[in-house]
């Protein structure tokens, strides 16, 4: 793994404002609230968190599929947020997105060949016969038949559709792929196949992944490093191995505990989490405080920052 940094995200924010007529109140929903991290070339960073914590929004904002409220994203040294129209489109081939729902992400009116090959045509990479050959090559790479190019998406199963989505993403030979829960909509038996395909492609094509998921086991399987998100903020970030061996943030501990285990004898002593609601002072205090077992008075007053606890193990908690 090289140490060259491919993507650098700095203080990325995405707020959603409720639009209400005749209202001056502007209390935004902070979907992504100032996250920063970087991904090295060839590395896979897993982004985990419960549903609604802003993982998907973060992934989409990084590729500017939705416009972030503020913050910066450097891709190969270029500030994506400063690029406009044509400049951004020129960079698109290098960064692709894999969507969660394979039933939603393929245009029902287009043949698979058109779906996979459209990017090639638009960016002038390949046309006509050349394009067809490239499409066939990519379809084979993701484990589909070249003849599938002439079929429509509805003729395929969920797993196959996800393969089509992956084929579309890799057709342009990207460097970064943001994979947004690429297996969570699939059967467990298919999940492993798709995961293996993704890992295989990463090794063969030298891809860099931002892998978004709510399933820690999957993330552990595929990621080099893991970032844990809670309510729009990153609370802990470390290499997969360290994070699983020694989770420091109480929320990470909760998540790890929630992984179902097969062996009942191995069950560890559980920490209990409160589900009470403390009134926090607005925009201050630790967001996890209401559920935290180690809650102290300081947590309600002061928000913790991500602090390096050695070996690139970053934690945002006052009492670690």
């Amino acid at each position: 793994m090289g140490s060259e940094i491919l993507v650098q995200v700095q203080d990325l924010k995405k707020y959603f404002f409720k639009e209400r007529l005749f209202s001056t109140e502007k209390e935004p929903i902070r979907a992504v609230d100032g996250i920063s991290f970087s991904i090295r070339k060839g590395e896979t960073l897993g982004l985990v968190g419960e549903s609604g914590c802003g993982k998907t929004t973060a992934g989409k904002a990084i590729l500017r599929l939705i416009e972030p409220t503020s913050g910066q994203v450097f891709f190969k040294g270029k500030d994506l947020m400063s690029l406009r129209g044509e400049e951004l489109r020129k960079l698109r081939p290098f960064m692709q997105f894999i969507f969660q729902d394979p039933y939603e992400s393929l245009n029902p009116r287009m043949r698979v060949g058109e779906i996979v090959g459209e990017g090639l045509e638009i960016h002038g990479v390949a046309r006509g016969k050349e394009k067809r050959e490239r499409v066939e090559e990519v379809l084979e790479q993701v484990g589909l038949h070249p003849q599938d190019a002439f079929r429509y998406p509805h003729e395929f199963s969920g797993g196959q559709r996800q393969r089509i989505g992956i084929a579309r993403a890799i057709a342009l030979r990207p460097e970064l792929i943001v994979a947004d829960e690429p297996v969570s909509a699939l059967d467990v038996s298919i999940q492993a196949q798709i995961l293996n395909l993704l890992m295989d492609l990463r090794d063969r094509l030298g891809l860099t992944y931002l892998f978004i998921s709510h399933d820690l086991r999957i993330v552990k399987h595929i990621s080099d490093r893991i970032a844990v998100m809670y309510l729009g903020k990153i609370v802990e970030m470390a290499s997969s191995e360290v994070l699983f061996r020694q989770p420091l943030h109480p929320y990470t501990q909760l998540l790890l505990q929630a992984i179902p285990r097969l062996d009942p004898a191995k069950r560890e002593e559980k920490i209990f989490f409160k589900e009470t609601f403390l009134s926090l002072e607005k925009e201050r205090g630790c967001l996890f405080a209401p559920r935290c077992p180690h809650f102290k008075e300081r947590c309600a007053r002061e928000a913790p920052f991500l602090v390096d606890h050695g070996d690139e193990h970053w934690v945002a908690c006052h009492f670690v």
Partner: peptide
């Protein structure tokens, strides 16, 4: 708002297309 439209945007297609 559908994903396949976002996918098209991610591919770098222009608005007209």
């Amino acid at each position: 708002e559908r994903d396949f439209v976002q996918a098209a945007r991610a591919l770098g297609l222009n608005d007209r297309r």
